[in-house]
Design a protein around this nucleic acid. Structure first.
Length: 422
RNA sequence: GGAGAGAUGCCAGAGUGGUUGAAUGGGGCGGUCUCGAAAACCGUUGAGCGCGCAAGCGUUCCGAGGGUUCGAAUCCCUCUCUCUCCGCCA
C-alpha cells in the first residue's frame, strides 16, 4: 500500500510513478475522497472537544446538585452531528481503503522505464547461451526417457499442470532443496518451516489480495488460501508487530511448495516443467532498515545466484522495467537460467525490494528513536530458487550426446555421490 | 464437534458509567550511591491521526464492530481470536 500522505502531499509524484507503470488508477478520486475525509475529521474533532468540555462540566454540576437539563439538550444535538459526520467518514474510509489496496507500488528511480518485458535490461550474464551439442532434447523428453519425470502420472492424479517425479527425479528435487537451504543458511539466513495455507489477512498483507484472488487456490470451507509462494507466510511472520532496528536485518529462508492457478496464462508454456500449478521453491525473505534496502537487494541477488553457480548453469540477471514490475515491487531483478533444449531463458528467481509497501499493509513497523521518520521496515524477497525450471535447465544444460544427464559436482553430495541421473 | 474461561500499556495484572491514557509490580532508560558492579533509592517510559516552523494543542485507541448515554475500559448486542477439558484423528 502506498502512503495516503504521499497522495495528499505529493500527488504529482504518485501520478508520475503510476504512469511509469502504465497502471490505470483513479488517483483523482482518491484525492477527492481523502480531502472530504480530512474536512469531516477536523470538524468532528472540534465538536468532540466541545462535548468533552461540556461533559466534564455536567459531571461537576451534577455532583453539586445543579440543574443540568439545558446542557444535556445542547450536547445531545452535538452528539448527533458527530455521529452523522463519523458515519460519513466511515463510508469514505471504506472506499478509500478498497481503492488504496488496488494501487500498485511506485517504481524506484533505478527501475528502467518501459511498458513491458521488452524493455527489461540484462544487467549481467554469466556463461554462454549455447547448445552443448546438436539435437539436445527438451527436458520433458530426456526426463521421460530416463524415467525420472512422469507427466502422464501428474495428469492422471490431478490434471494438466501437475507433475510427478520418480526415482532420481524425486531425489533430484529433494537434493536441490537441501542444497539451496544449506547455501542460504551459510549466507546467514535462518531456516523456517511455515504453513502452506494462510488466511486472507496474510494474503492481503503481502499484496496478493484483493487484486489477484482468481490466481489463488482456495479452501472456502475454512477461508484459507494455498500459498502461491513462501513469501506470504514468511513475510507475515512479523505481521502487526514492531521490529527493533538493532535486530535488523532479519533474514529467513524456507522451503515450501507453491500453488498457482495460472488463470489467464492457458496456452503458454504448456509442455514440460515450465509452467505448472504446484512446484517447490526455496525462498529468502529479508526485513531490513529502509536506509539499506537497496544494498540488501543486491546481496539478495548474489545470494540467489550462488545456487545457480553451484549448479553450473548459464544465467543472466535482468532488471525488470517499470511496466513489467510486480504489483508490490519498487524494483525487481529476475534471474534466468538458460535451457538449450527449448532454447529459452527460464525465470528461476525473482528478487524484489518492496520498500515499505508490504510493511504498511501488514503493519510491520520499525521501532524508531527520537527524530527518526521511518515508520516501517523494508521487506525484500527472492527465490533461491524455484525448482521445476531449474530441473529443466539441468536436464538440458548437463545433457550428454549419449542421452545421459551429468549431475553437477556441487549437487552430488546430496545425491548419494551419483554422477549421472537415471 | 461439545462444555467452560478469557482478551487492558513492553510483560504481568488492577480497574464495573464522570480529570483513568489507565493503579500496582516487573522490565527498559536516566540518575544518586560505588574504584567498578550488584543491591537500594529517585526520576522517567504507549501509539495513531489532525493542526503547527516549533514548543505545543486537539482527537482517538483498554480484541473487532455496533448500541445505550450529555459522558463508556466500565452497561447491552454481534463477531473474532486464545486457552482449558471432553470427543474424533495423523
Amino acid at each position: 500500500m502506498i502512503d495516503r500522505r504521499l497522495i495528499r502531499d505529493e500527488p504529482d509524484r504518485v501520478r508520475a510513478g503510476l504512469a511509469r507503470r502504465h497502471a490505470a488508477v483513479d488517483i483523482e478520486g482518491l484525492i477527492a475522497l481523502d480531502h472530504e475525509h480530512l474536512k469531516n475529521l477536523q470538524l468532528s474533532e472540534k465538536l468532540k472537544h466541545e462535548r468533552n468540555v461540556a461533559s466534564e462540566e455536567i459531571g461537576k454540576r451534577k455532583a453539586q446538585g445543579e440543574d443540568i437539563a439545558p446542557l444535556h439538550a445542547a450536547m445531545k444535538e452535538t452528539s448527533a452531528t458527530i455521529k452523522t459526520l463519523e458515519a460519513r467518514n466511515k463510508e469514505i474510509e471504506e472506499q478509500l481503503d478498497a481503492l488504496l489496496l488496488t494501487v500498485p507500488n511506485l517504481p524506484h528511480a533505478t527501475t528502467p522505464d518501459g511498458a513491458d518485458s521488452a524493455a527489461n535490461v540484462v544487467v549481467r550474464s554469466v556463461g554462454a547461451a549455447k547448445k552443448p551439442f546438436d539435437d539436445v532434447l527438451p527436458h520433458w523428453e530426456i526426463g521421460e526417457k530416463l524415467g525420472i519425470l512422469d507427466l502422464e502420472g501428474g495428469r492422471r492424479v490431478s490434471g494438466r499442470g501437475f507433475i510427478v517425479f520418480r526415482g532420481d527425479g524425486a531425489l533430484l528435487c529433494r537434493a536441490l532443496i537441501q542444497l539451496m537451504l544449506d547455501v542460504h543458511i551459510a549466507q546467514g539466513y535462518d531456516e523456517v518451516a511455515v504453513p502452506f495455507l494462510v488466511h486472507r489477512a496474510s494474503m492481503t498483507g503481502t499484496g496478493q489480495l484483493p487484486k489477484f484472488e482468481e490466481d489463488m487456490y482456495q479452501v472456502p470451507a475454512d477461508e484459507l488460501f494455498l500459498i502461491p509462494t513462501a513469501e506470504v507466510p514468511i513475510t507475515n511472520l512479523h505481521r502487526e508487530s514492531v521490529l527493533e532496528k538493532e535486530k535488523l536485518p532479519i533474514k529467513y529462508v524456507g522451503y515450501t511448495p507453491c500453488f498457482r492457478r495460472e488463470a489467464g496464462s492457458h496456452g503458454a508454456d504448456t509442455r514440460g516443467l515450465l509452467r505448472v500449478h504446484q512446484f517447490d521453491k526455496v525462498e529468502m525473505v529479508k526485513f531490513v532498515h529502509p536506509d539499506s534496502s537497496y544494498d540488501e537487494l543486491e546481496t539478495l541477488v548474489n545470494d540467489a545466484t550462488a545456487v545457480i553457480e553451484a549448479l553450473e548453469l548459464p544465467y543472466r540477471v535482468v532488471a525488470l522495467s517499470s511496466g513489467d514490475l510486480g504489483f508490490a515491487a519498487a524494483k525487481c531483478y529476475d534471474l534466468e537460467t538458460y535451457a538449450p533444449g527449448v532454447d529459452k531463458w527460464l525465470e528461476v528467481s525473482s528478487c524484489s525490494n518492496f520498500e515499505d509497501f508490504q510493511a504498511r499493509r501488514a503493519e510491520i513497523r520499525l521501532k524508531k528513536s527520537e527524530g527518526e521518520k521511518h515508520k516501517f521496515v523494508h521487506t525484500l524477497n527472492g527465490s533461491g530458487l524455484a525448482l521445476p525450471r531449474v530441473v529443466a535447465s539441468i536436464l538440458e544444460v548437463h545433457q550428454t550426446p549419449t542421452g545421459r544427464v551429468r549431475i553437477p559436482p556441487g549437487l552430488r553430495p546430496y545425491m548419494r555421490g551419483k554422477e549421472y541421473l537415471g
